[in-house]
Design a protein around this nucleic acid. Sequence first.
DNA 1: TATTGTTATACTCTATAACTATA
DNA 2: TATAGTTATAGAGTATAACAATA
Lengths: 142, 142
Amino acid sequence: MPKTKEVEPLAAEVWRILFDFIVATRDQRIRALARYALTPNDSRALFALDAEGRTMRSLAQEWECDASNATFIVDRLEARGLVRRRSSEQDRRVKLVVLTARGTKTRLAVAEEMYRPPPELTALGRRDLETLLGAVQKLPAR
Amino acid sequence: MPKTKEVEPLAAEVWRILFDFIVATRDQRIRALARYALTPNDSRALFALDAEGRTMRSLAQEWECDASNATFIVDRLEARGLVRRRSSEQDRRVKLVVLTARGTKTRLAVAEEMYRPPPELTALGRRDLETLLGAVQKLPAR
DNA sequence: TATTGTTATACTCTATAACTATA
DNA sequence: TATAGTTATAGAGTATAACAATA
């Protein structure tokens, strides 16, 4: 029997615990977003943007939604001053959506909230966290 | 300086990697649900139910939604034969929502999908997974 | 003629308010 | 009179189709 066969149930057990943990801590993250008056979808939108600009078309593709919905999503962020549309100079049909200074600030604040470790994780203590870090660092960064 | 102060950045680094991994693998899970024609919300609803029965009121509370929305959500599942409403015999105002045989089967199949470890995790191999397991098993089960 | 983005419209999911039936 | 659940209705988020501007 090849070794990979034996690894599956082990990976499944680790994943089960991690997945349950993610689900259990989900509400905390949603409430953190709500403090910024953002929905999970707003947050996702914010993280697709940068200061360089993304076309509406590419955003709709990333969000896997209709172009008309991307218009709606960007409209909302623009109404709040988090993003700005500017026309491309190469192709005047195209619009580039860029984060405003305020959008960048909000995005940073949200990242900080999302990356704040749940207390249950911190409670594991130094030794286990060092062990965990060594292992998870081998996960492919995407 | 107390030890817990030093642990925070370590926990933050572990969490950052885990959180990114969860986000990166999210689409796979949503697509798995779509193969059962379920939205993430349907899935959440399914996992709140069992064979014993839950009142509409308690479901609305767990889902943090209005009672009328719980009616809508349960209606959809019922139309697909995944759940069934029956009246309580103690209090005839109350309705108990129970999983049907089909609902139980679907719930099980979905659990299997959600708990299937992402390939990147399995790829870590036996040694790292054993290490991971030892650490994550100390997370409080909820 | 094809492509980018928006607008008009309709459908789904959600909440609020009014209602029915029990208690 | 109060409570459990549903129905009527309206608002938010989504898609489809028609459109305007540009290539």
